[in-house]
Design a protein around this nucleic acid. Sequence first.
RNA 1: GCUGAUGUAGCUCAGAGGCAGAGCAGCGGUUUUGUAAACCGCAGGUCGUGGGUUCAAUUCCCACCAUCAGCUCCA
Length: 604
Amino acid sequence: MEEKIAIMVNGRLYDLSYVPGDDAGVKSITFADAEGKQIYWHSTAHILAQAVMELFPDVKLAIGPAIENGFYYDFDSSYHFTPEDLGKIENKMQEIINRDTFFVRKAIKKDKAIKLFTELNQPYKVELLNELEDNISIYEQDNFVDLCIGPHIPSTGRIGVFKLLKLAGAYWRGDENKPMLQRIYGVSFPTQTELDTELKRLEEAKERDHRKLGKELDLFSIFEDAGPGLVSWYPNGAIIREIIENFWKQEHRKRGYQLVYTPHIAKAHLWKISGHFDYYEQMTVLKFGEDDYVLKPMNCIYHILMYTSHTRSYKELPIKYAELGTVYRYERSGVLYGLTRVRGFTQDDAHIFCHQTQVLDEVLGVLDLAIQMLKTFGFSEFKINLSVRDSNAKSKYAGSDEQWELAESVLAQAIETRNLQYKRVEGEAVFYGPKIDIELLDALGRGWQGPTIQFDFNLPQRFNVQYIDKDNKPHPVIMIHRTVLGSMERFVGCLTEHYKGAFPVWIAPVQIVIASITEKAVGYAKSVSNELQKYRIKLSIDNEPIGAKIRETSLNKVPYMLIVGQKEMEMRTVSVRERGKGNIGVLKIEEFIELLDKKLETLS
RNA sequence: GCUGAUGUAGCUCAGAGGCAGAGCAGCGGUUUUGUAAACCGCAGGUCGUGGGUUCAAUUCCCACCAUCAGCUCCA
């Protein structure tokens, strides 16, 4: 039975010491509850802050909330904490926990609170207070006081085990113009076992990190000499990408997309028309001969040129241009991350030009395709966000009210028609239109934007993108940008983490290793490989012990291994090892082909 | 871009103001092997780059580059 750490009364959380009224519906909160974890972690953050204050009395406290997997506290200090300090702070925290002092809540008037924190020389707390309504509570344990809405666990001794995990910088209030603070992250749990499980989870996440696997499996490299954020795909990575791309092309053709190719650069004036030139700082302008050119940060301009190069009839719509288009964006140095955040990447891009009556079908089509893509590649969990405009700041958006209302309602309607869970985020839309984003999750559960469906009310207007309707007059077209994977780089990065590098047979760079036991079987191994030519095969016919060959094949995460020796040679069979299963017995070659083809048919 | 940490062989990592180290991978031999690592040998390095201090710097100092953990950004 979990220990009670707080209570919930009519949906509101309170300290255990709170005495509810008679008629109140009271629910106990324990660590097992999401709210319980948050309270537990938040209380640990207070203990962290107290420990830091005891060790470094000059430190200024910022904020210390619970987060998804633990807690942090931000400190301002001229002294820079070192990783060794974390150990000292942990010891101090343990002392505080051993003292088992109470968390004491006090309601206090705002002016008194301001006076208190001014006297304590805690300017960040004073700044926060100035913005609060006059219902202030503070929490005290020992001599430590913190501004806090609570609730908290009853006393410091209720914390079982904890660990400080990392040290990092963070801006005060997340604003890069404000001071850089020092943030200490940690986790805590009632029992050692739970902490160990969490630490093990973090360790395992490292094992599926695509940057590590990319190296081990020879998928890709980002050469320091060539430039940060620029990806080179080795043959193994290139095969994975090629398979995804082929599948992508096939699925797009089926759905009425027309595949196109466009150049990597274009004259700068196009980006002056689009409006990017003046304020898109990720764009790179280069001299190409005499003229200024832009290294394209997106593909849409070219697709618009293709569209507008002919007079378009309503009968032609929708026109859907799709392109695996490589774009370059100057991402700030600190944000680059393996394959998931790069400076040159290939979007699986398409632009849909249609009229109003087609919009819902088109959005549904894209949504279905995106979900189908994700499921095909094994992603079953993803987050869908619908970003709409801030209705209090309509002037900062391109497009008319009617356009926005139509687009937002169509996007919401599409998601709801498919019964998908989503989050509506007010004010998160880009200025040119509302959008649906789907996040892929990496090994650590961090979301990366993959598929996206975005309306654009800006470019069609600026480039005069129109069609001739039945009335023989030009009408503005509706333009939708969309990707169903995101980018090849990011998608393969997430895919690698998703499968821990053990790609399904249809994607695996090497599908089968054929290994001879002795030199006598080499000829037979080669003849087996001839019969299996349509698969991606690697021969392993050196004079190495079979154990070594098995080990190497396993480490390379190859789905199937065929071992052949004297017995197999005589019987025209192969001894089959399956990844994760080991030896699955001896099969005739035709039987193995049948087994494999069945797997491939179902894309598994 | 900001804060902090890191950068030694293809990979994983040790080391130290005075000739640069290991394991794995690679190469050459030996071995002819039955389901996760045979044995012997060889080769491999401007110790991220550029300055400075020093008799001497890969080691100490400075700058830059890159990577990592976050923050911020993500038209």
